[in-house]
Design a protein around this nucleic acid. Sequence first.
DNA 1: ATATATTTGATATATCGTATAACAATTATC
DNA 2: GATAATTGTTATACGATATATCAAATATAT
Lengths: 170, 170
Amino acid sequence: MTVSKTPALDLTKTVRGSAPGDAGEGDALKLGELSELLGYSLKRAQLKVFDDFIHCVAPLQLTPAQFSVLLLLERNPGRNQTEIASTLGILRPNFVSMLDGLESRELCVRMRSTNDRRSHVLMLTDKGRAILARAKKLVATKHETRLNELLGPEKREALLGMLARIARDF
Amino acid sequence: MTVSKTPALDLTKTVRGSAPGDAGEGDALKLGELSELLGYSLKRAQLKVFDDFIHCVAPLQLTPAQFSVLLLLERNPGRNQTEIASTLGILRPNFVSMLDGLESRELCVRMRSTNDRRSHVLMLTDKGRAILARAKKLVATKHETRLNELLGPEKREALLGMLARIARDF
DNA sequence: ATATATTTGATATATCGTATAACAATTATC
DNA sequence: GATAATTGTTATACGATATATCAAATATAT
């Protein structure tokens, strides 16, 4: 209803392949104001970066989320599931199956806390530490290196700062 | 297995609340190298930005994805579903239900093309144009304004450029 | 000390975004 | 004119995300 702008007229090939002086209506679509939408570029960039991350760390079969868990466990040993999950923005129910996966691969362990027997103390295993070390190398040499080649170290750092700023204060 | 690092010892409260000279093991977890991971900050920032977008444009009930479709339809009238979807990185099967939603709200219409009777020519309705105009205003005055307050116009533009660069060339 | 409330990990479940395969109708190619 | 390719669609599956609920354990209040 009320389509306006040349109502009952098919514009497909008629208008598109027509007047060449009409501001170049080539074949590629115009993003227009979409290019100025931060959220749009943000998401597309995030997908690309995650994609590259997964590709770089593929030999270790670690997703970005799993990698972040291992990193956090290494830096904060002895914390419980609630603490780790909430720090990463993961809901506790969803963190259970995630831990199941990591623990079944013997990358980390849950140990009932003696202080509070409700909670599970989380620790990396030696195997987990080893895999994490290898993952860090892959990320550093393959993943982050590519970023530096694209942006340069200073711009890369500036980008990181702004993103952290948004994630924190927005 | 092989947990190492103080094997059979519960570190929960024992170690945590202990030595105050031990480099401040407060209560907050340390992100550590996570702060240097671009993908991590990228995703958290993206979630925040999307969240704010949804909040700002809530009176119009438009998701970021729907907004991007309307924007693209406005700038590129008369295109078919495959073209619009692929430009936005949406798979054609998933775009069907998305269009169903927009069309049922009479924000756009599908018209069988007379040139190629397989394809649907997509057009914004007047109602769709009106909603889009209001959405743009909300995004500009509420959403993007907040970004400018947080980063400043020049840094905001620099950020946008780097993200677009990553989305394109990475 | 006992009753009540809170916390923790877990299960079940629902929703959404995303991915692939397959189909009928139509068009393009050989 | 036979075969291949494209378009929109359906069905379906998987993962990420969200809420409600539960038993066990702990904390709090009376």
